[in-house]
Nucleic acid binder design. Structure first.
Lengths: 229, 229
DNA sequence: ACCTGAACACCGTTCAAGT
DNA sequence: ACCTGAACACCGTTCAAGT
C-alpha cells in the first residue's frame, strides 16, 4: 500500500475553488446540474467535504452571486467615463450595458441572483456606485432611491421576460382558433415579423429590447432630474 | 367489513380541484410547501393519484399559473374604462394595478410565473388586451411590441426586486466599515429614512415604488406615442 | 375508470468515524 | 485539520397491481 494515489486533488480545497467550480458547472451544464454531489465530483472530492467551505447549498449560491457580482464590479470599475451633470446618463448606460456582458456569459445567473434571501456585499457595492453616478448628475438621494427601484434588475444588466411576445412568429403558424382569441398579438406578430424577415425564430432581439427599456427609464429619470432643479 | 369508510373524498378528484388545492397550499404555507405528497394529502388521496390529472409537477405549476392568470383576466375584463386616444394611459395603468391586487393575494406566484417554460394562454390573452389598449391610444404594433418588453413582468403587476435598498435602515445600525465601502447608499439610506420616520423596518413602500416605475415607463411610452404621430 | 403500495433514482444534510 | 462512508429524511416519478 505504499503506492500513493496520484489522482487525488493536488491543490487542497478552498471556498474560492469550490465557488469557481460551481460557476464552471453552471456555465457548462446549467444551474440544475449544480448539485453538491456533482460539484464534489468535479473537485475530486466527496459531497460532504464541501461543507467545510460552505455552510449549505444556499450559502454556496450566495457565494456564487458574490463571485459574479465581483466579476461585474471589476469590469465596470475601470470604465472611467465622465459622469458630471448631463453625462450621468451615458455613464450609467455604459455601466449597465457593461454589467450585462457578464450575464451574457452566465445565462443561468439571473435566476440565482433573484432567489437570494441575503444581500451580497458586491451587489450592494455595485448599486452604491450607480447611485454615485446619479449624484454626479445632480440627483437627490430620494430620486436616486426611486431610480434603483424603477430599474430593478435592469440596473445589473438583465431583465427576466415572462414570455417572448414573438414566439411562434413563423408567420401563419398560428392556429386559427388562437388567432381569434388573441387578435392584437397575432396582428402585432405578423406585422413585426414582416418588417424583419431575416429572423426565422425568436425574432425579438434581446439586446435591442433591453436597451429600449433601459433608455425609456433613463430618459424618464433624466427628465425628473432636470425638472427638480 | 361492510362499514363503508366515510373519510374518503366524497367529490372525485379533478384537474380543477387539484389546481385549486395547490393554490390554497401555496397561499397558506408558501410555494416550497407545495409537494406532490403534501398536495395529495390535502385532497385525501395518494400522491400517485394526482398523475391522472397533471402530467407532472411542471404541468401542475403551469396549471396554477393558468388559474391565477384567469383570476386576473376575470378582474380586469370588467373594468370598462375609456381607452381611446390619450386615455390609453390611465386605462392601462388601472388595468395593471388591478392585476397587481391578485398578486398581493398570492405573493408566491411571481416566482412561479417566472419559472414557466411554456406560455400560458391566459397570460397571452392578458397581454393581448393590453396591446388592445395601446392600439386604442394609437400605438403602432412595433411600439406596442417594444412596450411589452419594456414593461416586462410589470405588465402583469409585479416586479421582483433583487434587494431592498432600504434594508437595515434603522438609521445608525450600519457598521462603520460598511459605511465606508458604500457611502452613497448609506447617505441615501439615512436621508430617506429621516424623511419618513414612521417606517421602522422596510421603509420602501412597495406599492409606491411599483407605481413610480410604472408611471415612468407609461409616461415614456406616451411621449413616443405622440412623437410618432 | 380510477386509485394506490412499494420501489427507484435522485436530492441536501447529519453523524460518527477515519487519517 | 481535513476529509469521508453510511445513513436519514425528504423529493418527483415508474411500475405493476388493486378495485
Amino acid at each position: 500500500m505504499s503506492v500513493t494515489t496520484q489522482l487525488q486533488p493536488r491543490t487542497p480545497l478552498s471556498r474560492e475553488r469550490v465557488l469557481r467550480a460551481a460557476v464552471e458547472i453552471a456555465d457548462a451544464e446549467g444551474a440544475e446540474a449544480l448539485t453538491m454531489r456533482r460539484l464534489a465530483k468535479a473537485l475530486g472530492a466527496e459531497a460532504m467535504s464541501l461543507y467545510h467551505y460552505v455552510a449549505n447549498k444556499e450559502d454556496l449560491l450566495d457565494g456564487v452571486v458574490e463571485l459574479i457580482a465581483s466579476e461585474i464590479n471589476d469590469a465596470v470599475d475601470q470604465l472611467g467615463v465622465p459622469s458630471a451633470g448631463a453625462a450621468w446618463k451615458q455613464a450609467t448606460r455604459l455601466r449597465i450595458l457593461t454589467a450585462r456582458t457578464i450575464f451574457l456569459r452566465h445565462p443561468w445567473a439571473p435566476h440565482v441572483f433573484e432567489t437570494r434571501k441575503t444581500v451580497s456585499l458586491a451587489v450592494v457595492r455595485y448599486h452604491d456606485r450607480l447611485v454615485g453616478l446619479m449624484r454626479d448628475g445632480g440627483f437627490s438621494y430620494d430620486l436616486a432611491h426611486h431610480a434603483l427601484h424603477a430599474l430593478g434588475s435592469r440596473a445589473l444588466g438583465f431583465s427576466q421576460e415572462l414570455f417572448d411576445p414573438g414566439d411562434g412568429a413563423a408567420a401563419g403558424s398560428v392556429p386559427a382558433e388562437l388567432a381569434e382569441q388573441v387578435p392584437h398579438l397575432v396582428g402585432m406578430l405578423t406585422e413585426v415579423a414582416h418588417d424583419d424577415p431575416d429572423s426565422t425564430l425568436g425574432w425579438c432581439d434581446d439586446q435591442f429590447e433591453f436597451e429600449f427599456g433601459l433608455d425609456l427609464i433613463l430618459d424618464g429619470l433624466d427628465r425628473l432630474r432636470t425638472a427638480a432643479r
